[in-house]
Design a protein around this nucleic acid. Structure first.
Length: 596
RNA sequence: GGAGCUGUGGUGUAGUGGUUAACAUGCCGGCCUGUCAAGCCGGAGACCGCGGGUUCAAGUCCCGUCAGCUCCGCCA
């Protein structure tokens, strides 16, 4: 660069700069060579501007321009001029001006990139991830990173203004039972022992409350060694916070204010407060999922009462076995073909439904269905009425235990809505889901596990149920859901040793085990612990939503693939025997795909 | 652990079991002073993810495997 100092970003030049001498630095977006006149679009993160090279301006620069190729890195000096009349390009923010190049330095050459550096590219994600540094040069990727920065900044500023201290918690911590699989880190100085990377700073932030910090927050990386999804990465970022002397209400009110600010500062949308609230039970009843998408109807209706006495064995059998029969009305889908309905059935099968019964509502309340004969006319009328069936509607029924019915219909509802294209894309429907059950029964482990986590406080009035009817205990927990996606969750915590012990007991954790794994927490509780509670938001998911992306990989600079590898660095990889030896670690796997 | 989809020049795609694998774009060379997805002319570039099998003959059919993606399980 010599002693050149950049005077402007490429993308900011406008008519007001006409006449100015500028020094620009950036990447070559594209070169257009007209023989005696060469145009080069120079790009930086702010946008691009057209450079003009001509023998009339500077012969040396012109000669250099002939060998310049895409993605070369240039520094230029030149003059901003008004474009000759008729050659303005209104589709470009900088389209009213040119920069006449007087001197050019090629700061670096570039190989031809494997894909176009522009928005809307259709490239295998494989290739994008391998060349992530090129992918990130694309404006839409930069914009997502910018949005992410602004979201984090808005959260940080908001929390600072509201008295929260940003504090760090250890990345090397202890593995604890319950929850996701831990990523383990061997300790060289303590051979045979392992740290775990935190699944969340949960215990530390509670201990910070014991320590009188009053309000804590952190924008923090968390690690979970579980299988990936479009919205799940092994390392992800949370806006994590905790407050002392608060109840559910305090957390919700402050947090929706923060979310409102984040929306405003990133995409200029100001969601209306307060956010609607719904109980877990109502969400399951109406939407089949604990993360309801409230942007459209198609709500689930229970017809168990009618189905109980019908002659259709699938229906009445399900109810005899303690199950239920519920349904949704796919409005106006009565013309679906046999294949369409087979596809819906296959979709319901994914969630454990053994089948999918259907009614097609015909003219004057008539019903077309293979199972009409099992129902009295009166029953048919009740069902159609309950689902508000009209001519041309398709009613879809699932009969099974409540979990399967909810999952199948809940997901079918989303699937059908998508197929019908009735989901308003521009809406942000936030909703708090409250009154989660504290525990759920794990069939495999034959014990109760915490629905949220083991430090969640039960509602006071349900405390006695912990022994008699654990499944009925409601938690002081809350999730924030938007458009069917869970973006945050938290709870008021247990702050008394005896209740925490009760909780561990309910989870089937022996006193010894509880002491060994969580003794430090319970001991802390004995030294004057304030009532406290908090919440954590998934920053990646929040940004994905605001950026309108379908995968959190698109808002993470260096994401991992579905099999938890990094295609840029090739991590994870085998390590030298010497490293393993130092750690006293031996592996017994046959390695696959580790060749360099 | 399971299910599905995808894999063909650098990139994106086409390719009823049958000659020399087609198209677009990019790339290289030439021409060109107002283009902006510049244009025109010419050229190079893939043995079809990998390994088996069926067949006279496989990009195409079968089996396995690898990779990417989506989903179920899993994710307090």
């Amino acid at each position: 660069m010599g002693d050149w100092k950049r005077s402007h970003m490429c993308g900011v030049l406008r008519s007001e700069h006409i006449g100015q001498k500028v020094v620009l630095m950036g990447w070559v977006q594209r070169r257009r060579d007209h023989g005696g006149l060469i145009f080069i679009d120079l790009r930086d993160r702010e946008g691009l501007v057209q450079l003009v090279f001509s023998q009339d301006i500077d012969v040396e620069s012109f000669n250099k321009a002939e060998v310049i190729r895409s993605e070369y890195v240039l520094a230029i000096t030149g003059k901003v001029i008004s474009r000759p009349e008729g050659t303005e390009n209104p589709s470009l923010p900088t389209g009213m001006v040119d920069v006449e190049v007087e001197e050019v330095k090629i700061l670096n050459k570039a190989k031809t990139p494997p894909f176009y550096i522009e928005d809307g590219v259709e490239v295998d994600e494989n290739v994008r991830l391998r060349y992530r540094y090129l992918d990130l040069r694309r404006p839409e990727m930069y914009n997502s990173m910018l949005l992410r920065h602004r979201a984090a900044k808005a959260a940080r500023d908001f929390l600072d203004r509201n008295g929260f201290l940003e504090m760090e918690t250890p990345m090397l911590t202890r593995s604890t039972p319950e929850g996701a699989r831990d990523y383990l880190v061997p300790s060289r100085l303590n051979s045979g022992k392992f740290f775990a990377l935190p699944q969340s700073p949960q215990l530390f932030k509670q201990i910070l409350m014991v320590a009188g910090m009053d309000k804590y927050f952190q924008i923090v990386r968390c690690f979970r060694d579980e299988d990936l999804r479009a919205d799940r990465q092994p390392e992800f970022t949370q806006i994590d916070l905790e407050m002392s002397f608060v109840d559910v209400e305090d957390v919700l009110i402050l947090m929706e204010e923060m979310i409102q600010l984040i929306c405003k500062e990133t995409i200029g949308v100001v969601p209306k407060l307060p956010f609607p609230r719904i109980s877990y039970q109502e969400a399951m009843d109406r939407f089949g999922l604990d993360k309801p998408d409230t942007r459209f109807g198609l709500e689930i209706k229970d017809i168990s009462d009618v189905a109980k006495s019908c002659g259709f064995k699938v229906f009445n059998g399900a109810i005899e076995n303690g199950g239920q029969v519920r349904a949704i009305n796919a409005k106006g889908c009565g013309a679906y073909s046999r294949k369409d309905i087979d596809d819906l059935t296959a979709y319901a099968n994914i969630y454990g439904a053994k089948g999918l019964a259907y009614f097609i509502v015909g003219p004057e309340g008539s019903i077309k269905t293979p199972i009409t004969k099992f129902f009295t006319q009166e029953d048919l009328n009740i069902i159609v009425e309950r689902l508000q069936g009209e001519e041309g509607d398709l009613l879809l029924f699932v009969a099974d235990n409540s979990d399967i019915v909810a999952a199948a219909l809940g997901n079918l509802r989303l699937h059908v809505a998508e197929k019908m294209a009735i989901i308003p894309e521009d809406k942000f429907n936030f909703v708090w889901v409250l009154d989660f059950p504290l525990l759920e029964y794990d069939q495999e482990e034959k014990r109760y596990t915490a629905k949220h986590h083991p430090f969640t406080s039960p509602r006071e009035e349900d405390l006695d149920l912990l022994d008699s009817d654990p499944a009925a205990v409601r938690a002081r927990a809350y999730d924030l859901v938007v458009n069917g996606m869970e973006i945050g969750g938290g709870s008021i915590r247990i702050h008394q040793r005896n209740i925490q012990e009760k909780m561990f007991n309910a989870l089937g954790l022996s006193k010894e085990e509880a002491d060994e794994k969580f003794g430090f927490l319970m001991e802390a509780f004995e030294y004057g612990t304030p009532p406290h509670g908090g919440i954590a938001f998934g920053l990646d998911r929040l940004v994905m939503l605001l950026a309108g992306k379908k995968s959190i990989r698109d808002v993470i600079p260096f994401p991992k693939t579905a099999s938890a590898t990094c295609l840029l660095t090739n991590a994870p990889d085998i390590v030298d025997d010497a490293q393993l030896k130092e750690l006293h670690i031996k592996t017994d796997v046959k390695l696959k795909g580790t060749e360099k």
